[in-house]
Amino acid sequence: MQIEVKFAGFGGQGILSAGKFLAEAGLHEGKEVVWIPSYGPEMRGGTAYCTVVVSDHAIGSPVINNPAHLIAMNRPSLEKFAPTVKPKGIIIVNCSLIPITSNRTDVTEVLVPCNQVAIELGNPKGANMVALGAYAACSKVVALDVLEAIVRHEFEKKPAFIDENIAALRRGAEIAVEKVESLR
């Protein structure tokens, strides 16, 4: 079992750190993981992204052209990467900033207003955590409580950020569960 996920958005949206949290959570669960920052010709054109691979076995090619899952935090990312997602995959769309959808019928597409939720929680920079929580709930690649433990660990030296980021993760997860249920 191997899952590849691409986190994509503008620089400054916390794309790389959200991906890193996911990779760390996978590692914590005893899986093989690879994290690669946007480091390719694709970095031109307004999108910054990272790829995370979580697998039960040794990971071969770290270069993923067709990820299983996509988290699109801005419109250019969705337009660019949605067509590459494998059939039956998952796309999380940050509908606060993206007024369109992927038009894919062979994937589960979940619209989450990440920025709006983050603002409501009083943590406007936490949109990436809302998205990550939503993604974890939809994909079940890693458990939410493991992600929470990673957040606690990562913000050990800045404890003020722990609760607000965990709140963002949880709210994202709740919204995603509601949305997925309504899709069924």
Binding site: L27, E32, V34, W35, I36, Y39, P62
Partner: peptide, 8 residues
């Protein structure tokens, strides 16, 4: 690639 990626 090896220089930039993270792995356990």
């Amino acid at each position: 690639l090896i220089g930039q990626m993270m792995e356990p």
